[in-house]
Simulated assay, not measured.
Amino acid sequence: MKDAEIPELGGGKRGKVRHVYSAADAHGEDILIISTSDRVSAFDVVLDRAIPYKGAILNAIAKWSFDQTQDIIPNALLRMPCSHIMIQKELVNIGFECVMRGYMWGSLATDYEKGMREKCGLPLMEGLLRYQKLAPPLFTPTTKARRGHDRDVTFEEMAVSLQQTLNPQGSAVNGWILARKVREISHLLYRRGEQLARKVGLTLVDTKYEFGLDSSGNLYLIDEIHTPDSSRYVVFSEWKQKWSGIQTTMESGKWPNVTQLLQDHPEFKVQELSKQLVRDLLIERGYDPNSGGSVTLRDEDVVETSARYIELYERLTRHEFDFKVDVPDGNGITATDASRP
């Protein structure tokens, strides 16, 4: 399902992957009807090819993960009338993406190799290598940018911003207390996600969380959780074996960093069960994220990406994926319908 729009519900807000509609249920409560498409984005660009079953898998993993973490924090999910639709409470988004990093990976590793020794106000020790496990994991919040890239912020900046934006009339919300609570819960959620992943032979490398407040100031987990679009997963045994080889090889001093080692020894690259596959494929095709340009996926790329999403769902949840997913057409998906059990 490449198009996530439901015309019967009006305009809504179109994102890279989801289309979100604000409505009220039969009891007058504000809700969000979230339609998740099979679209995929990379480097802030929505690609021209959709990934079969991707939307259904994202929702299925998110629902499963919401269920696995509701003892830590309540979530906004009310129900799923079909595989591509989530209905959530409409809450006040706190305006930050709370990124948890358990390993030197992705942009963190790239920036570190370029000389960065601080992330979101947190000092990074010398001698770290790409793919290295971090202890403890890092809480690295970013702003939620409507356009362009998100911006890193320190914990202190986050607390001050929460105080200013959520407490304009001197309400009961205390920005510093809320920031500490968000940080603590993010650590607990990441720990739970890593525990669940390790039970099935995986590792949760990094992930992000979003939070919202109701009218009484109660905190909820919103949007999605531990999906391959918001998280990186790898097979633990593969990481362990390749990390050992990387450590030994880097001791020679021949390579200044692991990225250059991987150019000579691509066999050390750890494969991900995440959207990173799409980014890697585009770079292999010659796409430059800095200069932009047209991007496309080949048939085999689409098949492999879909297969990895399905593999992650089945490994993580221990449930076989149902290929007979129901695709919404807008009929019957109404605000009143959302209030039904």
Rank of each mutant, 00 (worst) to 15 (best):
R198W: 05
L213S: 08
D38Y: 07
D299V: 02
T207A: 09
E90S: 12
F96K: 10
L166E: 09
R315G: 14
R79L: 07
H19L: 09
S274Q: 11
L261V: 02
G148P: 09
S215N: 14
F268P: 00
D337W: 08
H319W: 04
L122Q: 15
M100A: 14
N290C: 07
V234K: 00
D301V: 11
A62P: 00
Q163I: 01
N75T: 03
Q195M: 13
I61S: 01
A307S: 14
I73W: 08
A172S: 14
S274I: 12
P81Q: 06
V20D: 10
S244A: 10
G28Y: 13
D30C: 11
S37K: 02
I185P: 03
I185W: 12
V270L: 07
T110W: 15
E210H: 08
C120V: 06
L134S: 01
D3A: 04
R298P: 08
F236R: 01
T227H: 01
N167T: 14
W243L: 10
R308Y: 05
S339M: 14
E311K: 12
L108F: 06
V46D: 07
T110Y: 15
R101S: 07
Y53C: 02
G217C: 06
L58G: 03
K275L: 11
P52Q: 00
T69Q: 12
L204K: 01
T336Q: 15
H319Y: 13
D326I: 15
L122K: 14
W243D: 03
I51L: 14
P256W: 05
N59V: 06
R49N: 13
Q88A: 13
V278Y: 05
P256R: 12
D280Y: 00
R285T: 15
P136N: 06
R146S: 12
E314F: 08
T165L: 07
A335F: 11
I73V: 14
D3H: 10
Q241R: 15
D206H: 04
Q68A: 15
G292V: 04
S41C: 05
K242E: 03
I57G: 02
I31M: 11
G121A: 06
Q132L: 01
W64N: 07
E194C: 03
L221E: 08
F66K: 09
T165G: 00
L282F: 02
L213T: 01
A197T: 09
T259E: 15
G201Y: 04
V182G: 04
V327A: 04
N167H: 05
V302E: 07
Y190P: 11
Y309R: 02
V200L: 11
H19G: 03
L47K: 09
R39L: 04
R151G: 00
A335I: 13
Y309H: 05
I185C: 04
R39M: 02
L188N: 11
M158N: 06
W105F: 12
S41H: 03
Y103A: 04
T142L: 12
L312Q: 05
M100P: 03
P7F: 03
S291A: 14
P7Y: 08
L162W: 07
K275G: 07
K133Y: 00
N93C: 08
G286L: 15
T305I: 12
S35Y: 01
I61M: 12
D214T: 05
Y287C: 10
M100V: 10
V46Q: 05
D67N: 11
N75A: 02
H149W: 09
V278W: 00
C82W: 00
M100C: 13
T296N: 13
Y287V: 10
Q247F: 11
D206C: 02
D25E: 05
G293D: 04
E113T: 06
I94P: 02
